[in-house]
């Protein structure tokens, strides 16, 4: 899932300062699951902002809503009439939702979140990055553990010399070394020999965002001829 953080309330108040009528629009997809921008967080944030604005003598009128998925126009469409009446929309979706609303509606669309990473739930309240979306997956070679996302140095021939005595990373103290994990996992799978006998070649980063903005086309799904 896409993991995001809510921006600090001070920053959100600053972003909203010029506006008096705003729709707070959440997204019930990834950011709802990671407790950053779902219906629940819309309610909390709206209440907080109303309180602060009333207190500061500049009240704000907030409409609240949450789209099923803000990255799809069809789910945003029902909010069209409400959006027409606003000065701005504060989107609690990931950056994709903000971009999507901005291309559809002609009023300012403001971000309430900092979109962080593709992550997994570690346990309640903790999420960790496990995929970097590099566009050229090698997880079949590394026992399902991604060194691009989970090694601070993106090593393909790790581990580096900075592994701590307890097997954690020198860069992130509470983060297990991805390469120590990969070696353990491949050993369990009986596939360590393959790792030992081959050097992984330098990565082609052109499929990553280093190759410029990315686009996916599925010809067979295109509606026009």
């Amino acid at each position: 899932m896409i993991v995001a953080d809510q921006k600090p309330i001070e920053e959100i108040l600053e972003i909203l300062a010029p506006y008096k009528r705003v729709l707070f629009l959440g997204c019930q997809s990834c950011v709802a699951v990671c407790m950053a921008g779902g219906e629940k967080e819309v309610g909390l944030l709206a209440a907080a902002v109303r309180l602060a604005r009333a207190k500061s003598g500049a009240p704000i009128e907030i409409a609240e809503g949450a789209a099923k998925r803000q990255c799809d126009d069809e789910f945003n469409e029902p909010f069209g009439p409400v959006i027409q009446q606003q000065e701005a929309v504060l989107s609690l979706a990931c950056g994709v939702g903000v971009n999507k609303l901005a291309e559809r509606f002609a009023i300012p669309i403001l971000p309430a979140l900092n979109t962080r990473f593709f992550g997994k739930v570690e346990r309640q309240g903790i999420w960790k990055e496990v995929c970097a979306g590099c566009g050229d997956c090698i997880l079949h070679l590394t026992g399902g553990i991604c060194p691009i996302a989970r090694c601070a140095k993106n090593l393909l021939n790790g581990p580096c010399g900075g592994v701590r005595a307890d097997g954690t990373c020198e860069v992130k103290r509470d983060w297990p070394c991805a390469w120590v994990q990969i070696i353990q996992r491949l050993e369990e799978l009986g596939q360590l020999e393959r790792l030992l006998s081959t050097r992984m070649a330098a990565k082609d980063w052109s499929s990553d965002r280093h190759g410029g903005p990315r686009r996916r086309v599925r010809e067979d799904m295109l509606l026009e001829a």
């Binding site: 601070a152 140095k153 993106n154 090593l155 900075g162 020198e170 860069v171 050097r199 070649a201 330098a202």
Partner: peptide, 28 residues
């Protein structure tokens, strides 16, 4: 060498490169 990570240096705000690793560099 791959190099020490910049998070512990004097510019932790830097964008790390790590395009190649040390093994790739040797080969290069």
């Amino acid at each position: 060498l791959t190099g020490d990570h910049h998070s512990a240096g004097n510019h932790p705000q830097a964008k790390g490169v790590f395009d190649l690793d040390s093994v790739h560099l040797i080969e290069t």
